[in-house]
């Protein structure tokens, strides 16, 4: 088995390298856009536009944001990948979207929902007294958010974003269903060419583990640094 692994590596090392590159790139893009849209979603969740219904108020924008988040979190990511994979080319046939793009869109839609919860928790984790102190000095709610709440929330959010990145490294493997070039896709290629499963799986598994383990150690260091500032 060991000699098989060495032979596979000698012959296909470049495929694993490309796969690692794709996996990292896809995760990074997903988290980056997830952060942007997640922040937007978190904002929409706080939207104050309300329609009075009897004594209560209905908040349509909030409702849509929450519905989106709950639906994404309540359905399997693989289903979402399939959904966008079929939906997007149907909706925008002119754009001639590659399957890679469709998958990326699906991953970003998924990640945004989770990241928005991370951001919300980060903001709500800041002591309520901070807001009161800032407002009592005469700061507007916007100034309070920018100068007082967000700088402190970042300390909660950043490590959680590192964890989201680690999650994404693993979740992008599902996109191999559509052969988009990630690590797991490379496993399928190698395994198909050699009629071998265990050895390429061990190689790919080892790469995944090294990536996630070292990154989670990095996040732990980051977390310690951040809390040292308090």
């Amino acid at each position: 088995m060991f000699s098989n692994i060495v032979r596979i590596l000698e012959r296909y090392w470049n495929l694993f390298l490309i796969g690692t590159g794709y996996t990292l790139l896809m995760s990074a893009i997903t988290v980056l856009f997830g952060l942007i849209f997640g922040a937007l979603l978190a904002l929409l969740r706080k939207n104050r536009l309300g329609i009075p219904i009897g004594k209560k108020k209905f908040y349509p924008i909030r409702f849509l944001a929450v519905a989106y988040i709950e639906i994404i979190r309540g359905t399997p990511i693989l289903l979402q990948l399939y959904f966008f994979y079929f939906l997007l080319p149907m909706l925008f046939p002119i754009l001639n979207l590659s399957k890679f793009t469709s998958i990326m869109v699906a991953l970003i839609f998924n990640s945004s929902a989770y990241v928005s919860e991370v951001i919300r928790a980060g903001i709500e984790g800041v002591d309520h007294g901070q807001m009161e102190a800032a407002r009592s000095l005469g700061l507007s709610s916007r100034q309070t958010m920018m100068k007082i709440i967000l700088p402190q929330a970042i300390k909660n959010i950043l490590p959680a974003m590192g964890n989201e990145f680690i999650m994404m490294i693993k979740e992008t493997s599902l996109s191999s269903t559509f052969f988009v070039g990630d690590l797991m896709t490379q496993y399928k290629t190698v395994s198909g060419a050699l009629y071998l499963s265990i050895e390429p799986l061990m190689i790919v598994g080892f790469i995944y583990f090294v990536l996630t383990f070292s990154l989670s150690k990095g996040v732990a260091v980051l977390e310690r640094r951040m809390s040292a500032g308090d």
């Binding site: 007294g129 102190a133 800032a134 009592s136 000095l137 005469g138």
Partner: peptide
Amino acid sequence: RQKMGMVFQHFNVF
């Protein structure tokens, strides 16, 4: 509020 200073039980320094 700029003209009304407030001090809290739990300090709430930044």
